[in-house]
Design a protein around this nucleic acid. Structure first.
Length: 883
RNA sequence: GCGGGCGUGGCGGAAUUGGUAGACGCGCGUGGUUUAGGACCACGUGGUGAAAACCGUGGGGGUUCGAGUCCCUUCGCCCGCACCA
């Protein structure tokens, strides 16, 4: 057997053997505790994965492996969120079918994940674009439909020429969509929605008991955006009622005008003849503008007066009614009462158009002068009739109650959250299981007839179809019989957006081969909720909110006994490409500092201007974001570039394939763990990777006893060394366990490195033949196994074991063995460190004081001064305060 | 504008949560060993200083015997959200 360290051959050997043995198959039900360790459902793309994706999968894989070794039954599945636009678009470009692309791409993902030594149970692999799966996505849709949680509605919807209809949350403020497409417009469309707003309060309250990152909880709460206030009715001259929502009913006496959204249905009725032209122009302009500019916030308010008035129910005043696009039709009732004295936007508007600004809440030290800006703080009411003198909170409820008693208002709650738009006018998605019948209307497909199979069409290019959706064009498929009356009917041609597939997959993983139902309730009871859920922070709102909503809706449908799907959630940090320096003359640089490689043979990048050699070669057309710093390398001018996102178009992606083929899967894993905190954005470093690879090589040599260092008998007493070795080993077991539980993988690796440094230091003939050494090596390999999965296994086998290192029990540590005998007593004088003394951990304060005072260096700092006070920390330090 | 995060050596980052600042790794330096190799080994490496010592966690101030850690203030970078009444 060769003793040469050859990671690539070793990786292949063990990958094969583990696959044949079914090493990572999920255990059958037992009475052992369970642990469900899940990663976000990945979307397979043609580019495959980069080492950046592995910052998600490797750390959670370590946790899964450790939990197995700790005696848990672990569910560690993986599957593919395979329906979606990128695949469909790639299909259009390449002239191939999305189904075929999906098959290839998912196989490639799986192969790449295996390169990194992940321990997924591939027997449970699922694919959301397979009828076996989407049949049950359709089934869930029907459950929601039965409960009135899926409905159709017309309205203005965002529309992307590439993606079709978009949900509001898929549109960015700059007028692009969530995938970066431009030319987003709004269209009148009939669409399917899920009534997630019914669950708004529950989705807020449910967050309380979850172990989730604080920012994510906050983001969800903000996204749902609950506001408590009142609905207030204003009546126009014609007797129309305008209902407005306000969070500040206490300021009702300060309302000096009203504003309707341009799309408000009453606009035309309220507008008087003399203002008709202006109003129509404004509404038209707003409609056009709504495409882009309305979202891109323009600080300058615009609006026009309609000529109409409405009566303030609290004091009978007639308020002029304006229309302005700063009022959104989609929030509240699309109309507001404007209180310029106490609302910034209303203040800006009133100032611009010369409308009265009437204070009704007096700031504490107010001198009665007009406001320079809206006052939003606490105070007592003025100019408010019988409510004068009340505080803001009391006044809010008092005014609302007053209105309620008279039938002109009531307490009310509003949410920022909108219903979930789920229709897509695209091909590569789950067909919506609905049929439209002239007589019966929208009719759900009976459960027994599921799945509604997505037909394999050849033309799915929306542009070729001239705006028709691909399924609409599939006439044979569209024409069907009504399940209710058996008359001619047409199938729904919208498909479900991808978020539907990922809103319940975690349930399917519990029993992925279940035939007659979406999941086996027994299996779900056994595994759910997910114990550790790891994925990117970019999904902290939508995916996680939708999945929670489906969980609750399925519970209410009586098919699930579960409140929340994900008990503990964590987000991994992003991985950036390595920053560095490169040759200026090979770049084309624009004024913004973006550079592109124009040298046909590419360009070398250096870690530092003086670095001995290049760490990477970038090809033609690679891009850099320059910092502006420049330097010189042997007369050649260099420029510095930043760490930026890895992206195919920048040609700076590092793939697991290239890393696994050079330094192996273990170096890839360990470096990913070691580079820095798990949840932090970090740059890749080829040198950092090389450092880890060197360490693995040292471990290899150490375990196989081929250390280069010449053994010399220089240890004092080998029994002392053995005691020390055992102590260090037990301390290591403790540290590694604690770090993994805290997801501090970087310090876990550091601890393993320190331990090997220690072993190398004490390595000699005597210790090597001791029992303690043997025990240390074996325990160390077990601790190393979740991180360096291949090498630990290979070395374990070479030490003579037949049963896999990954099936060993996680070691325990003994506090008595781990306890230090001595510590470094830090001696401070007036808080400054003056001496360090090695002392027994057993010493008390008096002994510590004696030791400290005995030190000449301490004495030098005490000269002529009196020890005034002493602070002693057992096992740590002593601070002598003198004066 | 609102919300959140982060500022520690040349670099990625540690720091028992108020108690030795800089673990571990990279890079760098010196020496050795091989000498084609991005190889290996030993020692060193925050700054100033010959030393004693002093300075040092973006800046300023404070609390404390003691502050990277707590409080106030200020600057810089990054990420979300976008007129939500």
């Amino acid at each position: 057997m060769t003793t040469e360290f050859n990671p690539v051959a070793m990786d292949t050997k063990w990958r094969r053997r583990w696959a044949t043995q079914g090493m990572y198959r999920t255990p059958d039900p037992s009475d052992r505790p369970t642990f469900y360790c899940l990663d976000f459902f990945p979307y397979p793309s043609g580019d495959g994965i980069s080492v950046g994706h592995l910052r998600n999968y490797i750390p959670s894989d370590v946790v899964a492996r450790v939990m197995r070794m700790r005696g848990y039954d672990v569910l560690r599945p993986m599957g593919w969120d395979a329906f979606g636009l990128p695949t469909e678009n790639a299909a259009i470009e390449t002239g191939r079918h999305p189904e075929d692309l999906t098959t290839e791409w998912t196989a490639n993902y799986r192969r790449q994940l295996d390169l990194a030594g992940t321990s997924y149970d591939w027997d449970r692999e699922i694919n959301s674009s397979h009828p076996d799966y989407y049949r049950w996505t359709q089934w869930v849709f029907l459950k929601l439909y039965e409960q009135g949680l899926a409905y159709r509605s017309t309205g203005l919807q965002w529309w992307c020429p590439v993606c079709g209809a978009l949900a509001n949350e898929e549109v960015n403020a700059d007028g692009t969509d969530w995938r970066g497409h431009a030319d987003i417009t709004r269209r009148e469309l009939t669409q399917w929605f899920f009534k997630i707003t019914d669950y708004a309060d529950e989705l807020i309250d449910g967050l309380d008991d979850l172990d989730w990152p604080e920012e994510t909880v906050r983001a969800q709460v903000n996204w749902i955006g609950r506001s408590d206030g009142a609905d207030i009715c204003f009546t126009t001259d014609d007797g129309d009622v305008i209902s407005v929502f306000t969070t500040r009913p206490d300021t009702l006496f300060g309302a000096t005008f009203m504003v309707l959204a341009p799309e408000h249905p009453l606009v035309s009725r309220i507008t008087t003849d003399s203002h008709a032209v202006e109003v129509r122009d404004y509404v038209d302009a707003a409609a056009r503008k709504s495409e882009l500019d309305r979202v891109a916030l323009d600080p300058d308010k615009t609006g026009v007066f309609t000529g109409g008035y409405a009566i303030n129910p609290v004091n009978g005043e007639a308020l002029p009614i304006w229309i302005a696009d700063y009022v959104l039709m989609s929030y509240g009732s699309g109309a507001i009462m404007a209180v310029p004295a106490h609302d910034e936007r209303d203040f800006a508007f009133a100032s611009k158009f010369g409308i009265e600004i009437r204070p009704v809440v007096a700031p504490p030290d107010w001198d009665g002068m007009p406001f320079d800006e809206a006052y939003l703080g606490e105070g007592s009411l003025v100019n408010s009739g019988e409510f004068d003198g009340l505080g803001v909170d009391d006044a809010s409820s008092a005014v609302t109650q007053w209105l309620k008693d008279r039938g002109t208002g009531d307490f009310a709650v509003n949410y920022r959250l909108r219903d979930w738009l789920i229709s897509r006018q695209r091909y590569w998605g789950t067909p919506i299981p609905i049929v439209h019948c002239d007589d019966c209307g929208a009719v759900p497909i009976p459960e027994a007839e599921l799945p509604v199979v997505l037909p394999r069409v050849d033309q799915f290019d929306v542009q070729e179809l001239r705006g028709k959706s691909p399924l609409e064009a599939a006439e044979d498929w569209v024409q069907t019989a009504c399940p209710s009356c058996n008359g001619p009917a047409r199938r729904e041609t919208d498909t479900l957006g991808g978020f539907a597939c990922s809103s319940w997959y975690f349930l399917r993983f519990c029993s992925p081969h279940e035939d007659g139902r979406p999941f086996d309730p027994e299996a779900v009871r056994r595994w759910m909720p997910v114990d550790l859920y790891v994925g990117g922070g970019e999904h902290r709102v939508m995916h996680l909110l939708y999945a929670r909503f489906w969980t609750k809706a399925l519970r209410d449908a009586g098919v699930l006994e579960l409140e929340e799907p994900f008990r503990k959630l964590r987000h991994q940090g992003m991985l950036l490409a390595q920053p560095g320096w490169t040759i200026e003359s090979d770049l084309q640089v624009d004024s913004q500092g973006s550079a592109r490689v124009i040298a046909t043979e590419g360009v070398d990048a250096y870690d530092a201007p003086g670095a001995a050699q290049s760490y990477r070669h970038y090809p033609l057309d690679a891009k850099f974001d320059l910092t502006g710093a420049r330097s010189d390398r042997e007369g050649v001018s260099l420029v510095e570039f930043r760490a930026t996102k890895m992206s195919k178009s920048w040609r700076n992606v590092v793939t697991p394939d290239e890393v696994a083929a050079t330094v192996g899967g273990d170096a890839l894993r360990v470096y990913t763990l070691f580079m820095g905190p798990f949840d932090r954005t970090l740059p890749w470093s080829e040198q950092g990777l090389a450092g880890v690879s060197r360490w693995l090589g040292r471990v290899w040599n150490l375990v196989l006893g081929q250390t280069v260092r010449e053994s010399e008998r220089r240890q004092d007493m080998s029994t002392d060394v053995e005691v020390k070795l055992r102590r260090r080993l037990h301390q290591l077991v403790r540290r590694v366990g604690e770090d993994i539980d805290a997801l501090k993988f970087n310090t876990m690796v550091a601890a393993l490195m320190e331990f090997t440094n220690f072993l190398i230091e004490i390595d000699d003939e005597d210790i090597r033949t001791s029992k303690a050494w043997q025990e240390a090596l074996e325990t160390f390999l077990i601790l190393l196994a979740p991180s360096a999965v291949f090498m630990a296994e290979e070395l374990w086998e070479r030490l003579g074991h037949t049963r896999s290192v990954h099936e060993q029990e996680w070691p325990a540590w003994d506090a008595n063995v781990a306890a230090d005998e001595t510590f470094t007593l830090v001696v401070q004088v007036n808080g400054k460190v003056r001496e360090r003394i090695e002392a027994s951990t057993a010493i008390d304060e008096m002994q510590a004081r004696r030791l400290a005072l005995a030190s000449p260096r301490v004495q030098a700092h005490l000269q002529g001064l009196e020890v005034h006070k002493v602070f002693y920390r057992q096992g740590r330090l002593i601070n002598l305060v003198v004066r």
